[in-house]
Design a protein around this nucleic acid. Structure first.
Length: 516
RNA sequence: GGGCGCGUAGCUCAAUUGGCAGAGCAACUGACUCUUAAUCAGUAGGUUGAAGGUUCGAUUCCUUCCGCGCUCACCA
């Protein structure tokens, strides 16, 4: 703390000395001829002789990540775009003034150098510097050069330092960017148009979750941060936007965990005249393409596993089949499909399962379909490492999807799982306003029963459906989770630049900062 | 919210059974015109997360609190 402040003051004084040498302390621009990655790729393979005739003059800028001074000469490494280039500074070439400036530089400072390329005795491509231009001072010390920044909390809190020090982190976020690009390109090329719908909503609908509450002052109105864009996007299909998508944040007021951050990014899209099977195919293609675009192939390391995103590796099971398939031996003989038919038979399944592994919560008053969905999560989810589509979901947990024609307790809905996570959710959209009204009413009963997350009534949405919504398939894809799988990240915080954290200790730290 | 674990210099980590709080890097001073974890000599840097307790003596043991991580529950 005190030391940190000392360094800060010392470096401020160095900055004044740098000004005294005739350098601007915070200049406005620097004209480079090359970026460091350009130099490395264009000249990385050239021999000493090739670099000598003709001589290659360069101007290049970067942040000092290593610096070594040996009396009247020195070496440093400049970092730009995650790559490093060595520079060689000697008094004969930069003059008295240049060497004085070099002596005032610290790890973390930004400089620009002009000079020519050469190879050192050990063969490293370097810039033989003729002129140094000071660009910006690092007043706070960077973490230790060898171990870098490893403290997990500091990495999230001070992501800027994390990005400077850890190249893999930079790589993860470049891949995340490519992922979003891939999704956009895929949707655009399939005739979808991108839209933005409200993030602040008077009724938080379209998903089952507890919302964040906020308030609009001049309207004196309670607003919710959206938990899903669903109901607005479907209003747009009513309006004739037959293929729409949105990539944006949802906010859910829930606990945090390796798969959960309170704000997370979803790709959500709707395709008119399609049913759940068509959008299932589309989403499978979307994800396979994303794996290729982000990683260059379909086989992607994820921890101990290798996930194969190629089309032939995808599995499809109904929810009921999956429970049979992964029923644990310890819980006795596998159930039969008929065991899902009645409340009592499902209750017996739960009892058998809980005797073997007593950790599934069970409320005998909840709808049977909800129990089956919970049973699925308890029995199956941990087994789904390779891309798997689970389809046919209980009506009770699917208030917005169409019923199966032949089984009205089940819906035309699927979810995609991989890496033990739910990645995507899609269904044939319910577009019958009267059915929708009774589903909402059913949810209101759940709410009265104490389920805070049950859906609220949305009269305007029902009015929109009453104008006639075309048949449509709709899909949501969890962008953060896909990013995790494609970057071998095992917590969602590693794919979110600034994950939600408790604020820093206010008293001490604020006092400290005001000193700086 | 429950369980487990962690918190020591700016960073990464030590400290024997409870016995003088240390190292490397970073920083400062000096030497050094091909180094790359540069090297060499020296200097400085700490309320051991906080409060309380046990003890002649606590970084170490106990209690409470704070923060972080992992995990379980709710959720995608």
């Amino acid at each position: 703390m005190a030391l940190d402040e000392n360094i800060y003051q010392l470096r401020r004084e160095k900055l004044k000395k740098i000004e005294a040498l005739g350098q601007e302390s915070y200049p406005r621009r620097y004209h480079s001829t090359h970026t460091i990655p350009q130099i490395l790729s264009q000249y990385g393979q050239k021999t000493t002789e090739q670099l000598e005739s003709p001589r290659v003059n360069v101007r290049v800028a970067g942040r000092i990540m290593a610096i070594r001074l040996m009396g009247k000469a020195g070496f440093a490494h400049l970092q730009q775009a995650g790559q490093r280039l060595q520079i060689y500074v000697k008094k004969d070439a930069v003059g008295e003034n240049g060497l004085e400036l070099y002596k005032l530089l610290d790890l973390g400072d930004h400089i620009g150098v002009s000079g020519y390329l050469f190879r050192t005795r050990t063969g490293e491509l370097s810039v033989h510097v003729e002129e140094i231009t000071f660009l910006s001072k690092d007043l706070l010390p960077l973490p230790e050069k060898w171990h870098g920044l490893t403290d997990v909390e500091l990495r999230y809190r001070q992501r800027y330092v994390d990005l400077i020090m850890n190249r893999e982190v930079r790589e993860v976020f470049l891949k995340r960017s490519r992922l979003v690009q891939s999704f956009r390109h895929f949707m655009d090329s399939h005739g979808f148009i991108e839209v933005e719908t409200p993030m602040m909503q008077p009724i938080a609908g379209g998903a089952v979750a507890r919302p964040f509450i906020t308030h609009h002052k001049s309207l004196d109105m309670k607003l919710y941060l959206r938990i899903a864009p669903e109901l607005y996007l479907k209003r747009l299909t009513v309006g004739g936007l037959d293929r729409v998508y949105e990539i944006n944040r949802n906010f859910r007021n829930e606990g945090l965990g390796w798969r959960w951050n309170p704000e997370f990014t979803m790709l959500e899209f709707y395709q008119a005249y399609a049913d759940y099977r068509e959008v299932m195919e589309l989403t499978q293609n979307l994800l396979t393409q994303a794996a290729i675009d982000v990683t260059g192939g379909t086989r992607v390391k994820f921890g101990e596993h290798e996930i194969d995103w190629s089309q032939s590796n995808w599995q499809r099971l109904t929810m009921r089949q999956a429970i049979l398939e992964y029923w644990p031996e310890a819980a006795g003989t596998k159930p039969q499909l008929s065991d899902f038919a009645t409340h009592d038979s499902v209750r017996i399944l739960v009892q058998r399962f809980n005797q073997a592994r007593p950790h599934m919560a069970y409320d005998p008053n909840e709808p049977t379909g909800k129990t089956i969905a919970n049973l699925f999560e308890a029995v199956v989810e941990e087994h789904l490492v390779q891309p798997t589509i689970i389809y046919e979901f209980p009506l009770a947990v699917s208030p917005l999807s169409k019923k199966k024609a032949d089984e009205p307790d089940w819906t035309e809905r699927w979810e995609i799982f991989a890496g033990q996570m739910e990645l995507s959710n899609g269904f044939s959209e319910l577009n019958d306003p009267e059915d929708q009204r009774s589903r909402f009413e059913q949810q209101l009963k759940e709410r009265e029963r104490g389920d805070e997350e049950a859906h609220q009534m949305d009269e305007d949405y029902i009015r929109a459906l009453s104008y006639g919504m075309p048949p449509a398939g709709g899909v949501g894809v969890g962008v953060d989770r896909v990013a995790m799988l494609l970057t071998d990240s095992h917590t969602i915080r590693d794919v979110i630049l600034f994950p939600l954290l408790r604020p820093e200790r206010p008293a001490e730290d604020a006092a400290e900062r005001s000193l700086l």
